[in-house]
Simulated scan of single mutants.
Amino acid sequence: MVADSLSRCCVGVTKRRIGIQGIGVSISDEDVDWEKNVPSDYQGIINRSSMTLKQTTKKELYFLLCIGILIDDGRKWFSLCKSTGGKCHMLPATEILCSNERAHRFSFSGSRFKEVIQLQQGTYAFKCKLESDMFSPRNLYACYLVFKFLDSRKSLDDRLFFRVSYNLDIEPVGYKIAHLSLPEPINIPLIKPKNYNISDESSNIPKTKFPRMPKTCTDDSMHSWMQQRDDGWMEVILCKPLHKLEDHKLLDVFLRSAGSTLDGLIVQGIEFRPMQRDV
């Protein structure tokens, strides 16, 4: 699974390839500051993986971590964010979902973990234990739901959203409206010269504004829209930027569906990724 994931991530990026026990790891000449971004405890993180790495340089290990590895017996996916240099990690949905008989567990091709869960209509609670060594200090972190649709056409046919509330160390922090749809194109009229062909009256330009707001909330900052990931999955932000997660122990996330919003949603996990330095 790790080798397959590495191969997919390396496509179109490689300037030079290094071998780690038969695994091709991409190194770009643009990564000139890689030494500044190597976490001081990288060796401890490597030791938490089941991979056997021999005769591997520190630079090779860094680029391997940028792609990501499974640690803790497959219960976490750890990686480094090349844009911020911060630590990232994903927790599998099967490990953090509170007991719920409506969620179906099964193996799914392309997942980093052995199993994923399929949601149905209802409310779901995820309990994310926070480890200080999984976060980079002085970074703002975003929390993402990583998912796919059981029926890929569903995201194109429906305007779906759900309400997210979350607690940090038991204390309520806030809520967000997460939309399971992409921004729509909007037809903007063109300024037509005299000899303009009438068949070209408009052009499709992506919206910069959000498509439709639920009546329950009009504040744009309380909304997030799903985005396509490079690994083929979708993601949507579940909460506002979080400060100093390395000082906290627990994040509880509650998803409340609107109608049949969550029906058929395949969830791989929840990922924590740095957005920017908290300076």
Results as ranks from 00 to 15, higher is better:
residue 124 Y to P: 00
residue 187 N to M: 15
residue 89 H to K: 02
residue 131 E to N: 02
residue 3 A to P: 01
residue 241 P to L: 12
residue 64 L to E: 04
residue 265 L to R: 05
residue 126 F to M: 03
residue 110 G to S: 06
residue 257 S to Y: 01
residue 59 K to R: 10
residue 255 L to P: 03
residue 49 S to D: 01
residue 40 S to K: 14
residue 19 G to I: 04
residue 126 F to L: 08
residue 91 L to F: 10
residue 94 T to G: 04
residue 105 R to H: 11
residue 73 D to R: 14
residue 157 D to I: 13
residue 123 T to W: 00
residue 72 D to F: 00
residue 211 P to L: 14
residue 2 V to H: 10
residue 96 I to H: 07
residue 25 V to M: 09
residue 169 D to M: 03
residue 209 K to H: 05
residue 102 R to T: 04
residue 47 N to D: 15
residue 169 D to F: 00
residue 145 L to M: 14
residue 55 Q to F: 14
residue 265 L to F: 09
residue 139 N to S: 10
residue 276 Q to M: 12
residue 106 F to W: 02
residue 16 R to A: 09
residue 89 H to W: 07
residue 215 K to H: 12
residue 197 N to R: 14
residue 93 A to L: 06
residue 220 D to K: 11
residue 22 G to H: 05
residue 185 P to W: 01
residue 167 N to R: 15
residue 240 K to D: 08
residue 218 T to P: 04
residue 82 K to G: 03
residue 123 T to M: 00
residue 213 M to S: 08
residue 236 V to D: 00
residue 142 A to I: 15
residue 191 I to Y: 07
residue 187 N to A: 14
residue 212 R to T: 11
residue 174 G to H: 06
residue 190 L to T: 11
residue 235 E to A: 05
residue 52 T to F: 11
residue 48 R to I: 01
residue 30 E to Q: 13
residue 143 C to E: 01
residue 132 S to K: 11
residue 241 P to K: 08
residue 273 R to H: 11
residue 255 L to A: 01
residue 121 Q to L: 04
residue 230 D to S: 08
residue 227 Q to R: 07
residue 99 S to M: 03
residue 130 L to K: 04
residue 244 K to Q: 05
residue 33 D to G: 05
residue 4 D to T: 06
residue 99 S to T: 09
residue 131 E to T: 00
residue 129 K to Q: 11
residue 50 S to F: 06
residue 149 F to H: 09
residue 54 K to G: 00
residue 137 P to E: 14
residue 23 I to E: 03
residue 31 D to K: 08
residue 84 T to R: 09
residue 62 Y to R: 06
residue 33 D to K: 14
residue 7 S to V: 09
residue 272 F to N: 10
residue 162 F to R: 12
residue 168 L to M: 04
residue 49 S to T: 07
residue 36 K to S: 02
residue 254 F to N: 07
residue 132 S to F: 06
residue 246 E to W: 00
residue 261 T to W: 05
residue 198 I to V: 11
residue 25 V to D: 06
residue 79 S to I: 09
residue 130 L to W: 01
residue 34 W to Q: 01
residue 211 P to T: 13
residue 77 W to Y: 12
residue 37 N to Q: 14
residue 276 Q to F: 08
residue 138 R to V: 11
residue 273 R to Y: 10
residue 184 E to F: 09
residue 233 W to E: 02
residue 245 L to C: 03
residue 221 S to N: 13
residue 224 S to K: 02
residue 11 V to K: 13
residue 144 Y to D: 04
residue 77 W to R: 03
residue 268 Q to S: 05
residue 124 Y to F: 00
residue 107 S to Q: 05
residue 162 F to I: 07
